[in-house]
Computed example of a mutant assay.
Amino acid sequence: MSSADRSARPRLVYDDDCGFCTWWAEWAVLNGEFEPCGFSELTDAERDRLPDGWEECVHLFADGTVYSCGAATEEVLARTGTVPPTILGFLNGFADYEGLREDLYRKVADRRDLLGKIVSAEPPAKSR
């Protein structure tokens, strides 16, 4: 892990061509300590750290780890205090939780065009 990974704010990587994705990133930055990074801003080194099919979901570079898709979303929700870590710890204790989390993420991501139309009328709000 580089010293930059340990000292920098978590870097939230999102599809900056997607209205819903941009709204989500703005919400995360408003409610937490994240550095937003659209897909168009990724460096080659950052792109190399992402999993295959990286264009299909959100990612978070934090503490030397790359979280992707549902795991990235969960990490953002935990870091903003939106979902208490004790609840996430409890859920992660179930063998089926990871699959359920990723399925739920995919259901939302597959509807991001519709969701983008819904949230485009409203700027993201601070949750606290």
Results as ranks from 00 to 15, higher is better:
2 S>M: 04
4 A>T: 07
5 D>E: 14
7 S>T: 00
9 R>Q: 14
10 P>I: 02
10 P>V: 04
11 R>L: 10
11 R>N: 07
13 V>L: 10
14 Y>V: 05
14 Y>C: 09
16 D>M: 11
16 D>A: 05
16 D>G: 13
17 D>E: 04
21 C>L: 07
21 C>W: 07
22 T>D: 06
23 W>L: 10
23 W>T: 01
26 E>I: 02
27 W>Y: 08
27 W>I: 00
31 N>A: 07
31 N>T: 02
31 N>G: 08
34 F>S: 05
35 E>G: 02
37 C>S: 15
38 G>W: 06
38 G>P: 11
41 E>M: 11
41 E>W: 05
45 A>S: 14
47 R>D: 05
49 R>I: 02
49 R>L: 14
50 L>R: 00
51 P>G: 04
52 D>H: 15
53 G>L: 04
55 E>F: 14
56 E>M: 04
56 E>P: 01
58 V>Y: 03
61 F>P: 09
61 F>R: 15
62 A>H: 13
62 A>S: 15
63 D>A: 10
64 G>H: 06
64 G>P: 09
66 V>C: 03
66 V>L: 03
67 Y>T: 01
67 Y>R: 15
68 S>Y: 04
69 C>V: 00
70 G>M: 11
70 G>T: 03
70 G>V: 02
70 G>I: 01
71 A>S: 10
76 V>W: 01
80 T>S: 02
83 V>E: 00
83 V>K: 08
85 P>H: 12
86 T>H: 10
87 I>G: 03
88 L>S: 03
89 G>T: 12
89 G>N: 11
92 N>M: 03
93 G>I: 07
94 F>H: 08
95 A>F: 13
96 D>E: 06
96 D>W: 15
97 Y>N: 09
97 Y>L: 06
98 E>N: 10
99 G>A: 13
100 L>N: 02
101 R>M: 07
102 E>S: 11
103 D>N: 07
104 L>T: 14
104 L>Y: 05
105 Y>N: 05
105 Y>W: 09
106 R>D: 12
107 K>G: 08
108 V>H: 04
109 A>W: 08
111 R>T: 01
113 D>L: 12
115 L>E: 06
115 L>G: 09
116 G>K: 13
117 K>T: 03
120 S>K: 15
120 S>T: 00
121 A>D: 09
121 A>E: 13
122 E>F: 15
125 A>N: 00
125 A>I: 09
125 A>P: 00
126 K>M: 05
127 S>W: 10
127 S>G: 04
128 R>C: 03
128 R>L: 06
